[in-house]
Design a protein around this nucleic acid. Structure first.
Length: 425
RNA sequence: GGUGGGGUGGCUGAGUGGUCGAAAGCGCCUGACUCGAAAUCAGGUAUGCCCGAAAGGGCAUCGUGAGUUCGAAUCUCACCCCCACCGCCA
C-alpha cells in the first residue's frame, strides 16, 4: 500500500508513477473520492459514539438505545464506502524511484554494466539440455511422462552442483569477513550483519499472500483447494511475512535472511516460451535474500544485495550484466528493480538469473511490520528481497560456460570442494 | 483426529460487565547522584485513525470477525493460531 498522505497531498505525483507502471490512473481519483466521503462519515459516527459514551456513563438507557440506532445506520454507510476506498488503495502500486528508467517493456531496461568477457569457443557450444542429457544429469523426457511439461529430473552431478551452490552461498552469506568487505564496498559504514539461514514453509495462506502483494497474478499460483493454501513462488513469499504485525526496535535492524525453498509457478502466459530444458519450470529451487532495514538505508541495502549477487556469480566465473528494470516492466510492489543476467552461450545471450527488489514501505505497510525509533517514534520498515541463486538457471550457466569440446563440464573452482570433483563427465 | 489449556502493550504477565487503554516487572527515554560508568532514586514510555496551523480534542483497538448490552479485555457464536497429553504418521 502506498502512503495515504502522499495520495491526498500529491495525487499528481502518484498519477505519474502509476502511469509509468502501466496502471490505471483513475484509481487515484476513485480513491480520493471515496476517501472524502469516508472521512465525512467517520467524523459523524465518532461524534455519535462520544455521545453514546456519555449516555452510558449516565446509565441513560432510553437515549442510549436511540443513539445506537443512528450509529448503526452510519456504520453501514461507512462499510460501503470503505470497500471502494480500500479496493482502490490496494490496487495502487508502489511508486518507481526517481532513477528508474521510464519505459513499457524489456526493451526499455537499461544495462548498467557488463562484467566478464563471454568465452570464445573453438567449437560450437551446446545448450544445457543437450549437455545435461548426454551427461545423464538432466532428464526432461521422463519428467514429461510422469509430471508433464516444464518438469525435469536433476540427477547425479547436477544434484551435486545444486547442493554445492547452496553451500557456497551459505558460506559466503554467513562469513563475517566477506560480508563486511561487501558492505564496505557498497557504502562505508553499511551494516555487516550476517544472514540467518532459513528453510521457510512452501505453502501460504491466501490472506497473507495478499498482504505480501504477491497473490496476483493468481493464475500464476498453484492453489490447494482442499486446504485453501497456495504454493509459494519464491521463498520471499513466506520470508517477507516473518515479522508481520510486529514492531521491531531500531537497534535490531537490519534483519537479514537467506532462505532456501522449492518454488512453484504455473507459468501461465508463457506458453511456448523457453519450453526446452530447465530454464522455466513449474518447480525449481532457489536461494533468496530478504531484509528488513531502516528506511534511510534501504537503497544502500538494495545495492548491497546486488553486490552480493555479483560477488557470487563472479566467484563462479560467469560473465554477466546488471540491468536496471524500467517502470513498466517491474513488479507492482517494487520501487526499484535491478536484475543480474548471466551469459548463456547455448542461447548466445544474457538471461535473468537474479533480481533485486526494493519494496520501500509498500509491503511493510500491508504487513504491519514497523520499527520503533530510539526516540519512540514508529514507522514502517523498508523491505528488500533478492535472488542469491536461482539454482536451475545457475546450473544452466555453469554447464554452458564451462563445457569442453568433448561435452564434459569443468566444475568452477569455488564449487570443486563441494562437488568433490573437477570435471563432470 | 481426540482431550484439555491458552492468545492482553517492545517483552514477561495481572485483570471475568461500568471508575480498564488496561496492575506489576523487564526493557527503553529524561533527570538526579558520579570525573565517567554501573548501581540507586524520581519522572516518562502502546498503536491506528478523525478534526485542528498548532496547542489540543475525539474515536477505535486486549488473536480475527460477527453478536448480546445503555455499557465488553471480561458474556455468546464462528474462525485463525499456540501449548500440553493421547492417537496416527514421514
Amino acid at each position: 500500500m502506498i502512503d495515504i498522505k502522499l495520495l491526498r497531498e500529491n495525487p499528481e505525483k502518484v498519477k505519474k508513477g502509476i502511469t509509468a507502471k502501466k496502471f490505471d490512473r483513475r484509481l487515484v481519483d476513485e480513491f480520493l473520492e471515496s476517501d472524502g466521503k469516508w472521512r465525512e462519515l467517520v467524523k459523524k459516527v465518532e461524534e455519535l459514539r462520544a455521545e453514546q459514551k456519555k449516555l452510558s456513563g449516565k446509565r441513560d438507557i432510553e437515549a442510549g438505545k436511540k443513539n445506537k440506532e443512528l450509529i448503526r445506520e452510519i456504520e453501514a454507510k461507512i462499510a460501503e464506502v470503505e470497500k471502494i476506498r480500500e479496493a482502490a488503495h490496494l490496487k495502487i502500486p508502489n511508486m518507481p524511484s526517481d532513477d528508474t528508467p521510464i519505459g513499457d517493456s524489456e526493451e526499455d531496461n537499461k544495462v548498467l554494466r557488463k562484467v566478464g568477457e563471454p568465452r570464445k569457443f573453438d567449437f560450437e557450444p551446446k545448450d544445457h539440455l543437450a549437455l545435461g542429457e548426454s551427461l545423464g544429469i538432466i532428464n526432461s523426457e521422463s519428467a514429461g511422462k510422469i509430471s508433464g511439461a516444464r518438469f525435469a529430473y536433476l540427477m547425479g552431478d547436477a544434484v551435486r552442483l545444486e547442493f554445492a551452490l547452496v553451500q557456497y552461498a551459505f558460506e559466503t552469506l554467513t562469513n563475517p569477513e566477506t560480508i563486511k568487505a561487501i558492505a564496505e564496498f557498497v557504502q562505508s559504514g553499511h551494516s555487516a550483519k550476517l544472514f540467518i539461514p532459513v528453510v521457510p514453509p512452501a505453502m501460504i495462506k491466501p490472506a497473507v499472500f495478499e498482504r505480501m502483494a504477491r497473490l496476483e497474478p493468481k493464475e500464476e499460483r498453484y492453489h490447494l483447494a482442499q486446504d485453501d493454501l497456495y504454493l509459494i513462488g519464491s521463498a520471499e513469499h513466506t520470508l517477507g511475512p516473518l515479522h508481520m504485525d510486529e514492531t521491531i526496535l531500531e537497534e535490531k535492524l537490519p534483519i537479514r535472511y537467506v532462505g532456501f525453498s522449492t518454488n512453484f509457478r504455473r507459468e501461465a502466459g508463457s506458453y511456448g516460451k523457453d519450453t526446452k530444458g530447465i530454464l522455466r519450470l513449474h518447480q525449481f529451487d532457489k536461494l533468496e535474500l530478504e531484509s528488513f532495514s531502516l528506511p534511510e538505508n534501504s537503497v544502500a541495502e538494495q545495492n548491497f544485495f546486488v553486490a552480493i549477487q555479483e560477488y557470487l556469480i563472479k566467484g563462479l566465473g560467469i560473465p554477466y550484466q546488471v540491468v536496471s528494470i524500467c517502470a513498466g516492466d517491474m513488479g507492482g510492489p517494487d520501487a526499484k528493480q535491478i536484475d543480474v543476467e548471466a551469459w548463456m552461450p547455448g542461447q548466445n545471450k544474457y538471461r535473468e538469473t537474479h533480481t533485486a527488489d526494493l519494496m520501500t514501505d509498500y509491503q511493510s505497510r500491508r504487513l504491519g511490520t514497523k520499527l520503533k525509533r530510539k526516540n519512540g517514534k514508529t514507522e514502517f520498515v523498508h523491505m528488500n528481497d533478492a535472488t542469491a541463486f536461482a539454482i536451475g538457471r545457475t546450473i544452466i550457466a555453469i554447464l554452458e560456460n564451462y563445457q569442453t569440446k568433448d561435452g564434459k563440464i569443468e566444475v568452477p573452482k569455488v564449487l570443486q570442494k563441494y562437488v568433490g570433483k573437477k570435471i563432470i563427465g
